[in-house]
Amino acid sequence: MSTEEGSTMRIPRSARIPASFAFLAAASLGISACAATATPPTAETTPAATVTVTATTTPTPESEPSEAPAPETSCADSTQAEALETALPQVEAYPDFPDLPWVAAEPDRETWDACAPLSYVVVTLEGGTASTPHHILLFHGGEYVGTATADAYGFSPEIGQLSDTLITVTYRYPLPGEPNAAPTGESVATFAWDAGTQSVVMDGDLPPA
C-alpha cells in the first residue's frame, strides 16, 4: 500500500500487544522454568543398615579327671618250695609204699608260677628210680588244685607248657616184654584250665593201668 511521503504509518489496533499482557507472559514463562528446575531429584534408596551379631558359645565344662586305675594286684610273693610245703601233705600216699613221702622230682627246675592260671610240679617218691611212680601236681594262680590224674604213673613224664592255661604231657611205659630201662610205650594227654568251670579239663590218653 502506498503512502504519501511525510505521512505517519499506522498499526491496526488489533495488531498491538498490550504491554501488561507481554509482562504477564514473560513472568509465566519464568515461573514455569523455575518450577521445572525446582523439582527435587528422586531420593536414592538408603541401604539397610547391616547389623553384626556376635554368637556366644556357652563353654562346655571340662570333664572331671577320671580316677586313676587301681594298681594291679601282684602275684603272691612266694616260691615253688613254699608252695610244695602246702601241697605235698594233701597228696595221698602211694599204696605200695605208704611210708615214702612225695618230693620234687627236679627240685631245681621252676615250673610253678604264682601268676599263671595253670602251672605244675612233678613229684616222685623219695629215694626212687626212673621207673618210680610220679605225680603231676597242678596249680592255679599258685594255689594247689590237685593231681593231674588219680593214679601215679611210673617213669618221669615229659611236660610242655603250651600256654599259661594249657600243658601237654607225654607218658612213657614199657610194652609187654620190654625192660624198664628202655620203654617205648607212649600216651599223650593235655590239661587245660577252664575258667568257666574253674577246673582242670583233661583230654587225651593215659598209660594202661
Results as ranks from 00 to 15, higher is better:
Thr132His: 07
Thr46Asp: 02
Ser7Glu: 13
Pro59Tyr: 08
Thr132Cys: 08
Val51Pro: 00
Thr197Cys: 03
Val53Arg: 08
Gly204Tyr: 11
Asn180Gly: 11
Leu166Ile: 02
Ser187Tyr: 03
Gln90Thr: 10
Ala87Phe: 07
Pro179Ala: 13
Ala189Met: 15
Leu138His: 03
Ala87Cys: 05
Val145Arg: 12
Phe139Val: 09
Leu24Asn: 00
Thr197Ala: 14
Ser14Ile: 13
Thr57Tyr: 14
Ala43Trp: 08
Glu44Lys: 13
Ser7Ile: 12
Ala83Met: 10
Arg109Ala: 15
Ser28His: 01
Glu126Gly: 01
Leu118His: 04
Pro61Asp: 11
Leu138Ala: 03
Glu67Phe: 10
Gly142Asp: 06
Asp96Trp: 03
Glu143Gln: 14
Gly127Gln: 08
Pro41Met: 09
Thr56Tyr: 07
Glu178Phe: 02
Ser20Asp: 10
Gln161Met: 08
Asn180Ala: 14
Glu64Asn: 09
Pro174Lys: 05
Ala181Phe: 07
Ala49Arg: 06
Thr149Asp: 07
Glu85Trp: 02
Ser78Lys: 01
Leu162Gly: 00
Thr86Lys: 01
Thr184Lys: 08
Leu118Thr: 02
Ser131Lys: 07
Pro157Asp: 01
Ser14Lys: 11
Trp193Arg: 04
Thr149Met: 06
Thr190Glu: 15
Glu158Gln: 08
Ala195Met: 02
Leu88Thr: 03
Gln90Lys: 15
Asp151Thr: 11
Asp194His: 05
Thr79Cys: 04
Phe97Val: 00
Ile17His: 03
Ser20Asn: 06
Arg10Asp: 04
His134Ile: 05
Glu92Asp: 13
Glu67Gly: 12
Arg13Cys: 02
Ser20Leu: 12
Gly6Met: 08
Phe23Gly: 08
Ser119Val: 09
Asp203Ala: 14
Thr3Arg: 14
Ala87Tyr: 06
Pro59Trp: 09
Val51His: 07
Pro179Cys: 09
Thr58Ile: 15
Gly128Val: 06
Ala35Cys: 07
Pro98Asn: 09
Gln161Ser: 11
Arg10Asn: 07
Ser74Tyr: 03
Ala116Leu: 04
Thr58Lys: 11
Gly196Gln: 05
Phe139Glu: 00
Gln161Trp: 04
Pro133Gln: 02
Asp164Lys: 00
Ser199His: 12
Thr50Val: 15
Asp77Met: 03
Thr46Val: 15
Thr190Gly: 13
Gln198Gly: 13
Glu44Arg: 12
Gly141Ala: 11
Pro207Lys: 06
Ala182Met: 13
Pro183Trp: 04
Ser66Glu: 15
Ser63Asp: 12
Ala150Lys: 07
Ala181Asn: 06
Ala114Gln: 13
Asp99Met: 12
Asp194Gly: 02
Gly141Val: 07
Ala114Cys: 08
Glu82Trp: 05
Ser199Asn: 14
Pro176Ile: 13
Gly146His: 06
Ala76Lys: 08
Gly160Arg: 12
Ala192Lys: 09
Val201Asn: 01
Ala76Trp: 06
Glu4Ser: 11
Pro157Tyr: 02
Gly204Ser: 08
Glu82His: 03
Leu125Val: 07
Val188Thr: 15
Ala189Asp: 13
Val51Trp: 04
Gly177Glu: 10
Thr147Glu: 01
Pro65Ala: 15
Ala25Tyr: 03
Val123Thr: 02
Cys75His: 09
Glu178Ser: 04
Gln198Phe: 09
Gln161Pro: 00
Val103Cys: 06
Thr54Leu: 14
Tyr153Ala: 00
Tyr94Asp: 10
Ala27Asp: 01
Val169Asp: 02
Ser163Gly: 03
Ala105Asp: 11
Glu92Leu: 14
Ala81Asn: 04
Leu24Gln: 01
Ser66Gln: 11
